[in-house]
């Protein structure tokens, strides 16, 4: 299931989930930063848990539920909060940041946010505006 839709693909089983989404599915919201698990830009949810899609062979999501930033349809409270509270500047980290934040859950404490976003790097905001956006998302 990809963003709630049953999806069949004929691709090499070792192709990275990140590349399958961007090249085969036309879903370019998921970004590549480092390609080595360090930056979190490629974060999406597999069965509701955040993973780095640059380190996931597509074979590992057969039968699983994959949710990308497109799956939030631009209407998620976190998306609005990132715009309103300056959580996004250049935007390259933003889809991954938001997907990791979705998994943190509702009404999180600051250190839950810090732990939940520890695998996501941002070069622009200095993080405070991101934490604020997640705190204030409603």
């Amino acid at each position: 299931m990809l963003n709630g839709r049953r999806t069949r693909l004929d691709v090499h089983p070792m192709k990275r989930l990140l590349d399958v989404l961007r090249e085969e599915c036309g879903l370019t919201g998921t970004k590549e930063g480092c390609g080595e698990g360090e930056c979190g830009a490629c974060t999406l949810l597999v069965d509701n848990r955040p993973v780095n899609s640059c380190l996931v062979p597509v074979a590992h999501v057969a039968g699983a539920r994959v949710m990308t930033i497109e799956g939030l349809r631009g209407r998620h409270p976190l998306q609005r909060a990132f715009v309103e509270h300056g959580g996004a500047q250049c935007g390259i980290c933003t889809p991954g940041m938001i997907m990791a934040a979705v998994a943190v859950g509702r009404k999180p404490a600051l250190d839950q946010i810090r732990t939940g976003l520890a695998g996501n790097l941002c070069r622009c905001t200095g993080y405070e505006a991101i934490y604020r956006s997640v705190m204030r998302a409603r």
């Binding site: 698990g37 848990r49 993973v51 780095n52 380190l55």
Partner: peptide, 9 residues
Amino acid sequence: VGGVQIQNR
């Protein structure tokens, strides 16, 4: 270990 993304995999 890592961040949550690495812990999940």
